[in-house]
């Protein structure tokens, strides 16, 4: 017996520009203020979960990447976001090789949300929902496991710190800044080693230490644009949302007091704001990958990592005239 399938084909695009993110979110996030407010609560919730489960920062970072990625292609619903977040953590534990039983994560998740009567029936229903979302998360990532695999921000802060013989205080400050970074969309925009470099650059500036990370780190122009994108995103966050940052409340004693003004001065001294080149609005708007909501009603959905496979498929379609 043989069967043939009706298919949709997606090429993995693990990183998107700010405009592309906004374009995708247009379909999925109808109330941006509500999304942003909830996102901060979710980060706090996931942080509490990871702390209580004794999980490392890389697991938290992976879960937050999944949460943000999920909402690029799936509708944001306020009543569902804690369930999505729990599912992201379950999957994050698997991806970061810090495995925890789903039972343990789900029970704690329900308990942290002050749910009463957590019996086996409630737990099973919750787990069922979690596992359904798990696959949707992976689909929104295009089953691309290359992200969040070997490279995590905190690991790389210390690796770069060691390689370039940076002062321990610089690394510590960068590590605290890296926690604030999780509140931005930056994980969706640039790879984690670039974020690590950008946090180290901000830390050097804050501590008024000379830094030439960009010239030490052998990079091409693309890397420079990526670092600038990350660097200015971080500085802008501290300028635009200083009250939301954790840095001000966890300032090590060796850093002079900070304020918005301090970051404004940093920005003024950093030269013209540069970063990733955005496509025109019409180009972004005509990108079907971003414009169309995911069709889970299409029964077969295929995910590829290579543009070559995509090209081969297009050629095959032309030849067959389909």
């Amino acid at each position: 017996m043989s069967a043939q399938f009706e298919m949709q084909l997606y090429l993995s695009r693990p990183y998107l520009t700010r405009q592309q993110i906004l374009c995708a979110q247009k379909n999925t996030i109808h109330d941006r203020r509500s999304y942003n407010r909830k996102k901060l609560l979710i980060i706090k919730f996931l942080t509490d979960l990871t702390l209580q489960l004794n999980l490392p920062r890389k697991t938290l970072e992976t879960a937050i990447y999944y949460y943000q990625r999920y909402h690029l292609f799936n509708l944001f619903e306020t009543e569902l976001c804690y369930t999505v977040a729990t599912s992201c953590l379950v999957l994050g534990c698997k991806q970061a090789e810090t495995f925890k039983k789903a039972n343990e994560i789900c029970t704690l998740s329900l308990r942290l949300r002050k749910m009463s009567n957590i019996n086996s029936e409630v737990l099973d229903a919750f787990k069922k929902r979690i596992f359904q979302i798990e696959l949707r998360i992976l689909e929104s990532c295009g089953f691309d496991y290359r992200v969040n695999n070997y490279v995590h921000i905190d690991d790389y802060i210390f690796k770069f710190g060691k390689t370039y013989a940076l002062d321990v205080n610089i690394c510590h400050t960068a590590w605290i800044i890296a926690y604030d970074v999780l509140k931005l969309d930056l994980l969706l925009t640039v790879p984690q080693h670039i974020i690590a470099l950008a946090t180290l650059k901000v830390a050097c500036k804050l501590l008024e230490k000379p830094e030439n990370l960009c010239s030490q780190y052998e990079m091409g122009n693309t890397d420079r644009d990526l670092i600038n994108e990350a660097y200015f995103s971080i500085i802008n966050f501290y300028i635009n949302a200083f009250d939301l940052c954790d840095l001000k409340d966890n300032l090590p004693s060796y850093i002079p007091p900070i304020s918005i003004e301090r970051f404004m001065v940093l920005k003024a001294n950093s030269g013209p704001e540069e970063g990733l080149t955005e496509l025109t609005e019409s180009d972004v708007g005509s990108d079907r990958f971003l414009e169309e909501q995911r069709q889970y009603s299409v029964r077969e959905r295929r995910y590829v990592l290579s543009t070559d496979i995509m090209r081969d498929e297009v050629e095959a379609l032309k030849i067959s005239g389909r």
Binding site: M1, S2, F5, E6, R322
Partner: peptide, 10 residues
């Protein structure tokens, strides 16, 4: 799009 694989016996 038509898929490029057919699934046969287990």
């Amino acid at each position: 799009m038509r898929e490029s694989y057919s699934k046969e016996n287990k």
